[in-house]
Nucleic acid binder design. Structure first.
Length: 154
DNA sequence: GCCAACGTTGGC
DNA sequence: GCCAACGTTGGC
């Protein structure tokens, strides 16, 4: 069992969008970074814990708890020429990009980025490091526990 | 909308 | 396989 922080732009898929999806589940499509892809493809398991993070928006921060509900499978958007995530180098036989499914566990009161930065327990968090741009990063169990026990207020 | 940081591309 | 140019990310 592992823990992850996964960023989404609310203008793309917000926590409220997720809550309205069938089964409150979304395919984590559009990841076009090999490191992030590898996390999904090689390391994620069913029921891994996910912090749903809003990025590139007015109030960046953790906005929900979710979980991995399907193992990685080829990202459908790579095959669709009309999709902005289309990848001409990907084929059905040799897909390049994969995604897991993520299911909402619960929405929470937003934990803002600057709040996360205040806690010494979280200073090692990958997302908080200068220059980090990875949209999917592992969370240490101690970080997960600190956030869920100390910072989450339903 | 700016821009620093980082990843990818492609010519050589 | 180097590296300059370019594109993207994401906080501010």
């Amino acid at each position: 069992m592992r823990y992850w922080l996964m960023k989404s732009e609310p203008g793309d898929v917000s926590i409220d969008n997720l809550a309205e999806m069938p089964n409150q589940t979304v395919a984590w499509y559009g990841v076009r970074n090999y490191q992030a892809r590898n996390f999904m493809r090689n390391q994620m398991s069913i029921d891994d814990g996910v912090m749903f993070y809003h990025s590139n928006c007015k109030q960046p921060g953790i906005t929900g708890i979710a979980k991995v509900s399907a193992l990685a499978y080829p990202d459908a958007t790579q095959f669709n020429p009309k999709n902005k995530y289309f990848d001409p180098k990907a084929t059905q036989e040799q897909p390049r990009w994969f995604n897991v499914d993520v299911q909402l566990v619960k929405k929470i009161v937003l934990i803002p980025l600057d709040e996360l930065r205040k806690h010494p327990e979280l200073t090692a968090m990958r997302t908080l490091q200068r220059g980090n741009r990875l949209s999917i990063t592992p969370l240490d169990p101690s970080e997960w526990n600190f956030i869920t026990k100390r910072l989450v207020k339903n």
